[in-house]
């Protein structure tokens, strides 16, 4: 496990949903898929983005938990909520800057991606990374990845004033050392036919192209 790392490049996602299906096969949360596959803005684009737990070095979810239910193991994997402890308060769901934990309301239990603990703890790949055809979700050695990609893996995110470092890496431009999460630029800024649109970026698949609204 030590040499294998998780790398995500959301922009490579083709929205095939294989990860969503595979995730539900994981033994630690059998039958319930934990991965998020988000349509970035469905009315105006086809871009999808997978989101797994990033396994923060100083997990906000664990810190805001009132019941000490979220623990990090020696390898830095942030585990799903401990079943006897979780009180189902949703603090973690609302606290996580990546929007990862899922609240199972009926059973009073938060569940989230635990990097397929049953698999990665014995040297196997997580379910999602084994099935991802476009390698948007990649689990392997850093050197192998670096040979294959021109993008650079980083594990630092800036949410406004807060810097968050994670175990899972995300691919970004080779000139960058971190991924700043710009909110203001990407806010809803205009309304067309009652639908809010976000800042258009020319040529981007998620761009709010006005063309789709013109009959």
């Amino acid at each position: 496990m030590s040499r294998l790392e998780f790398f995500i490049d959301q922009s490579r996602c083709i929205g095939c949903q294989a990860c969503v299906q595979a995730c539900g096969e994981c033994d630690t949360h059998r039958g319930t898929s934990m991965i998020h596959l988000e349509y970035v803005h469905r009315p105006t684009g086809v871009q999808t983005a997978p989101m797994v737990c990033m396994h923060c070095e100083d997990p906000t979810c664990a810190k805001v938990c009132p019941a000490d239910a979220i623990k990090k193991d020696d390898n830095g994997v942030v585990l799903s909520a401990a079943k006897p402890r979780c009180v189902g308060c949703s603090n973690c769901v609302l606290g996580c800057p990546f929007g990862v934990p899922k609240m199972q309301v009926s059973i009073d239990l938060m569940m989230k991606c635990d990097m397929c603990y049953d698999r990665t703890s014995v040297g196997k790949k997580p379910m999602c990374a084994t099935v991802c055809p476009s390698e948007a979700l990649y689990f392997g050695e850093r050197e192998t990845l670096e040979r294959k990609r021109r993008e650079k893996p980083v594990n630092e995110f800036k949410f406004g004033q807060q810097t968050v470092r994670t175990k899972v890496n995300m691919m970004t431009s080779s000139e960058k050392d971190s991924i700043p999460i710009d909110v203001a630029e990407l806010m809803a800024h205009e309304t067309v036919q009652g639908e809010t649109l976000w800042e258009a970026r020319e040529g981007a698949p998620d761009a709010a192209s006005f063309a789709v609204w013109d009959d």
Binding site: S11, P97, V100, M171, P180, L186, R201, A204, P205
Partner: peptide, 18 residues
């Protein structure tokens, strides 16, 4: 939370130039 996930995707895409 859903918009946080979307924001990360948008920012990642923007940073990578896609």
């Amino acid at each position: 939370p859903a918009c946080r996930r979307r924001l990360i995707a948008l920012n990642q895409g923007q940073a990578i130039g896609r």
